[in-house]
Design a protein around this nucleic acid. Structure first.
Lengths: 110, 110
DNA sequence: CAGTATCCGTTTTGATACTG
DNA sequence: CAGTATCAAAACGGATACTG
């Protein structure tokens, strides 16, 4: 941001959700933990490089918890929202609802 | 977004705030209408090309109202939040507060 | 004053082949 | 299955000169 200090809280939020697929990932994981391959299939179109990068970032921010089961292939890796992740989803919900209201307004008028 | 339909409301929101300076612009204009040059000086570091582009987009989305006074130089151009812009600011406030809580948590622990 | 036009660098994402 | 490595493409913003 222009001045890191002045907008620090906002920058923190924006950093947390920065990336084309992070919000869809969060929304998908609201319904419960999912495996890597499930997320991959859900987000039709994402490349593996981008998906694994954005999952890693969400994990490092404490928004997702990654759980690995098994030590040799085939691995089972699950991603789940943390408590902090759920608080983020609540804000995403507000963003969603603003978009809904805006679309409705546009449909009503032109 | 991956599937325009599935995430349409979210995409609408994200499109509205997309751009490095749009949120700072909104926050600045919460305190009342401002002239182009005032916004320009406030956002230290923005280029004129980017600023005018983002102001124009916000205007086209119905978030800002642009008012021009005078027909010959020097022009007086003012930007103000619309009612719809204020509803957007309320969501931005939620984003801000999530960032605040997150920063506090990080400061408390590590 | 309030922009637009042009050119360029950086950041972000995409496609695909490969690995434990 | 769950990724990483490499290379290429696209999106986005920065600098600056110019205009009504």
């Amino acid at each position: 941001m222009t001045t890191p200090d002045r907008y620090a809280p906002l920058s923190k939020f924006l950093a947390a959700v920065k990336g084309k697929y992070k919000l869809p990932i969060l929304i998908y994981l609201k319904h419960g933990p999912k495996r890597y391959s499930q997320v991959y299939r859900r987000l039709a179109g994402v490349s593996e490089r981008i998906l694994s990068k954005q999952l890693r970032e969400l994990e490092q921010e404490g928004i997702l918890l990654k759980t690995v089961t098994g030590t040799k292939a085939p691995l089972r890796v699950e991603y789940a929202l943390t408590a902090h992740g759920f608080t983020l989803c609540a804000v995403v919900q507000q963003m969603w609802e603003w978009g809904e209201r805006t679309l409705e307004k546009e449909a009503a008028q032109g």
